[in-house]
Computed example of a mutant assay.
Amino acid sequence: MSILSEQSRQQRQTINTLRQALRPYARAGYGPALWQLASTLGAYLALWVLMAILVRYDLPFWLFIVPVAIAAGLLVRLFIFFHDCTHSSFLPSRRGNRIVGYLTGALTFTPFDSWGRAHLVHHGTYGDLDRRGVGDIWTLTVEEYRASPWYRRLGYRLFRNPFVFLGVGPAYQFLVLNRLYVKGQGASERRSVNITNALILVMIGIGGLTVGWKAYLLIQSAVMLTAGTLGVWLFYVQHQFEGGYWARHEEWDPLVAAMKGCSYYKLPKVLQWITGNIGLHHVHHLLPRIPNYRLQECYDEIPALQEVTPLTLRKSLKSLFLNLWDEQRQRLVSFRALRST
């Protein structure tokens, strides 16, 4: 037996052993799921009522800042439930997951089957340099960037600019791209786009008739754009961080991709609650069927998961300046680093 095949065999054994240890946590429950949904949705709707009252009485703008921020955080949390539903991990019932997925998808302006398909592709390809482009952040290698024409380099620099991918990007993604079909989509994905768009129109109609068109559009845009920025940042920092992982397809390993290419974003408890434990992203990638409400328990009880170095809020800010994958040095580097190589 060759050394390479022996290493592959050992890797498969390691993956199977670790995933076997994770399987007991991949059990959804109606109790925790419905409590999460009811409490979060109830608080979100209550904040909407509060903000509508503020608009109705034309109160000062600064009074909106806190309720908009809290509502945006709750919308991010609802998106985590939506995300779990795409993995059929939020509720024990597949049908229940689809119903909740479509509901939370409408609230977050995201079509269930369309987004879910792209996200599942992301899970099967993340960190694979030869299978980029679906459900991930546009990332070039140093060599690809240098070989690109000037207009592609300019477009890439604009895309990776924080003001674009955290400002214009979320608005474009949630308000425009999510309303459209994507090339290669099947009937179920296109149907989910149509259904979600119809549900959004119903919500807009109800909002306009109850709180007024101006009030609805003001509140919805403020909450949606704030939540979109927070959500995109979470997705970005889960895979774009110092010490990340990329490899060519023949060398790509799913266990290494999960343990090295997915961050453990250690957040303060309040933010961890808002983000539905998704900071434990390496655990999620190892076994996506673990519901968000069991990720912390899983992490606490399996020592192998604790070997990943936590990414703190302060350290995560460095990710803003990591733009290209350097295949020679096996690390993400900044545009500035190109000057010295």
Rank of each mutant, 00 (worst) to 15 (best):
Y264V: 03
H281W: 10
V270E: 14
L286Q: 10
K266H: 12
I278N: 02
T275V: 12
Q272G: 10
K266Q: 12
M259E: 09
E301Q: 15
G279I: 00
S263E: 01
L267Y: 04
D300A: 15
L280N: 07
H285D: 01
L271N: 07
P268G: 10
T275I: 05
L280Y: 15
L286F: 07
L280I: 09
H282A: 08
I278T: 04
I274K: 00
K266P: 06
K260R: 15
M259G: 02
R289H: 15
H282T: 10
G261T: 09
P288N: 07
D300Q: 15
H281K: 03
Y264L: 12
P268F: 12
V270S: 14
S263K: 03
P291H: 08
V270F: 15
K260L: 07
L267A: 08
C298N: 05
H285M: 08
K269G: 06
K260V: 02
R294N: 14
K269E: 12
L287H: 10
N292K: 09
T275P: 02
P291E: 06
E297K: 13
G261C: 11
W273G: 00
Y299T: 09
L295M: 13
Q296G: 07
L286A: 06
N277C: 11
Q296W: 13
Y293N: 08
V283Q: 10
I290V: 10
N292E: 11
C262W: 01
H281R: 08
S263C: 09
H285Y: 10
T275A: 14
L287W: 03
A258W: 02
Q296Y: 15
L271Y: 08
H282P: 04
P291W: 05
V283F: 04
A258L: 08
L280D: 00
E297R: 14
H284A: 00
R294P: 00
N277W: 02
R294S: 13
Q296A: 14
L295K: 05
L295T: 01
N292P: 02
P268K: 13
A258F: 01
H285G: 06
N292L: 09
P268D: 11
H281F: 08
Q272H: 08
I278A: 02
P268M: 09
Q296T: 12
L271V: 09
E301M: 10
P288V: 04
Y264E: 04
H285C: 10
S263V: 01
Y264K: 13
Y299G: 08
N277R: 04
L295N: 00
P288G: 09
P268Y: 11
L267S: 05
L287D: 09
N277M: 11
Y265Q: 01
P268E: 11
Y265T: 05
H285K: 07
W273I: 02
P288E: 06
Y299R: 07
Y299E: 09
I278P: 00
G276T: 03
G279P: 02
H282N: 07
L287S: 05
P291Q: 08
Y299S: 03
C262I: 11
K266E: 11
H284P: 01
C262R: 06
I290M: 04
L271W: 07
S263Y: 05
L286N: 01
Y293R: 02
L295C: 10
E297A: 11
R289D: 14
L286V: 06
H285F: 07
Y299F: 14
I274F: 00
V270A: 11
K266G: 05
R294A: 14
V283D: 00
R289A: 14
W273E: 00
K269I: 07
